[in-house]
Design a protein around this nucleic acid. Structure first.
Length: 489
RNA sequence: CGGGGUGUGGCGCAGCCCGGUUAGCGCACCUGCUUUGGGAGCAGGGGGUCGAAGGUUCGAAUCCUUUCACCCCGACCA
């Protein structure tokens, strides 16, 4: 591992890539735009996954698995949906290869598929084709299914975690008897997303809904959580869609009511992806590397022992053993770094990997019956008496979790601007970045023009919008909404 | 798909213009000894045939032709 990362101030994008690769989170796959999630990065995803999986199970959802391949014809059944995804679908046209007679392989033309198959970019169509078979009566509703899966969207420009050709996510697909129930579900999930982001990833998010042009292809309404990254660009961190009856119509999914009437089902779908890992990196990272919120840190505490020879190592092991055992029994994720090598090197490496707490223990500490504890969030070091460690660590972890969240909130506050003229708007976008809160007349023409002229898009229309007396930043007409604009990932 | 760029041990690069010993350097890696409280030192060692194909030449990483791949910038996107 080389010594350091490019400073954020020098080149934020390079900083990001440096951190991802040097902290051992991920590597590039051989096919353009693909990503190998390495064990350390996957451990983060695993913790996010476990957390959210518990949340949805506690609210009555169950997991299932649907196939990777979807008949091409399915995609076309919902008009808006096909529009949104057709351009980025990987298509399977043949089923085998054959030798080219030299030493290569060619697609065997005899194996051409009757109906071509697409690799799922999202599973609505496949799932609704199945729901048609599974739903007959109101007794079958609601149907609350989630799947953890990979999906493929053939993007032109990719970045590790933020946008890769294949990515991991969860997609929930629910079916309801009533429109209100679907809306309730959509909002319930959005709240879980907010909780996950803020309470676990320490990533403050705005909640609200998308404009027409930004919403999911095939949805009536898209709700989202939107975060602000360290370079003052916005990141869509999770979306929850009320699909209305669009997919029920497309796949003819009806049910019989209590009154024995036939009605179309109401649907929702919602997803978060490995993109969240990128969000954590860009919310908390600094020039020393990652800073991980304890709740999703693969290692919450790393122990760096300082010793000279085999004998002093033995003494250290004996000194540490009871302490670490108690910590582990308390559920703290502890990693001991007994590798050969200088302590300085290890300090830097674990800082790069963002471990919240580092425990340094050497001969001097044994003598004084203490350890040195260093916090990754503030860099502060303190001496802690041996007998206090077991209680002190969990407190510190809580404190770090909180500090990271507070710092991120403060950053967002300092980078959220209210503007009242389009001139100011352009100035902020060009020179400052961040979120802009302002009036919008609700037309897609205004939205499009602003996007073309400034690259800023409406990230979210926040639930707490206040429109009294507000005029549209662009047209000057009375505002229909207060919108949050920003340049986005 | 349009514009720009790069391909030389695992990574980062030099060499190319002006062909000529055995293709070189830093980092990483391996072995040994000494080290270890903020990125250790010394010694020894392994690994590349220069993106690919063809051509020019006595001789090609270097010149020519073709081709492939990747990166950056733009249009699209979670």
């Amino acid at each position: 591992m080389s010594k350091s990362v490019t400073p954020q101030s020098e080149n934020y994008n390079t900083w990001y890539t440096d951190v991802v690769t040097k902290a051992d989170l991920a590597d590039y796959g051989p096919v353009k735009g693909t990503m190998v999630v390495k064990p350390y990065g996957f451990a983060m995803w695993d913790l996010i996954k476990e957390t959210f999986d518990k949340m949805i199970k506690d609210t009555g959802h169950v997991n299932a698995y649907f196939p990777l391949f979807i008949p091409k014809s399915f995609l076309a059944k919902e008009a808006e949906h096909v529009e949104g995804f057709a351009k980025e679908c990987a298509v399977v046209t043949h089923t085998r290869l054959k030798s080219d007679g030299k030493n290569g392989l060619v697609v065997d033309p005899d194996s051409k598929l009757e109906e071509e198959v697409i690799v799922r970019p999202t599973s609505e169509t496949l799932i609704w084709s199945m729901y048609k078979k599974w739903i007959q009566s109101y007794r079958d509703l609601p149907l609350l299914i989630n799947q953890w899966a990979n999906v493929v969207r053939w993007e032109m420009r990719t970045r590790l975690f933020l946008r890769t050709t294949e990515f991991l996510w969860q997609e929930g697909h629910t079916a309801h008897a009533k429109a209100e129930e679907a809306e309730e579900e959509t909002l319930l999930i959005l709240e879980l997303y907010r909780k996950l982001a803020e309470d676990y990833l320490a990533m403050p998010v705005l909640t609200g809904f998308k404009s027409e042009s930004e919403k999911f292809a095939g949805a009536d309404k898209t709700y989202c959580i939107e975060a602000l990254m360290g370079d003052r660009r916005a990141l869509q961190a999770g979306t929850s869609h009320n699909l209305g009856q669009n997919f029920a119509k497309a796949f003819d999914v009806t049910f019989q009511t209590k009154e024995n009437k036939e009605e179309l089902v109401y649907a929702t779908s919602w997803g978060i992806s490995t993109r969240l890992v990128g969000g954590v990196i860009m919310t908390h990272g600094d020039d020393k590397g990652l800073r991980l919120p304890p709740r999703i840190a693969p290692y919450q505490v790393v122990v760096v022992p300082i010793f000279k020879n085999g004998e002093s190592q033995e003494i250290l092991i004996k000194y540490l053993e009871p302490i670490l055992l108690k910590l582990k029994n308390k559920g703290v994720r502890v990693h001991e770094d007994w590798r050969k090598g200088s302590p300085g090197f290890k300090f830097n490496e674990w800082e790069m990997k963002g471990v919240p707490i580092r425990l340094e223990v050497g001969p001097k500490d044994i003598e004084k019956l203490q350890v040195v504890i260093a916090r990754r969030d503030t860099g502060e070091k303190q001496f802690v008496k041996k007998e206090d460690i077991v209680n002190r660590i969990p407190e510190l972890l809580d404190s770090i979790q909180k500090t990271l969240f507070e710092q991120a909130k403060e950053f967002r506050k300092n980078n959220t601007h209210s503007v009242s003229t389009y001139t100011q708007f352009k100035d902020v976008i060009k020179n400052k970045g961040g979120f802009i809160r302002c009036g919008w007349d609700g037309t897609s023409e205004t939205e499009r023009t602003i996007k073309n002229e400034t690259k800023a898009t409406i990230r979210v229309i926040p639930f707490d919008e206040k429109i009294e007396g507000l005029d549209c930043i662009f047209s000057g007409k009375p505002a229909k909404h207060e919108a949050i604009f920003a340049k986005a990932y």
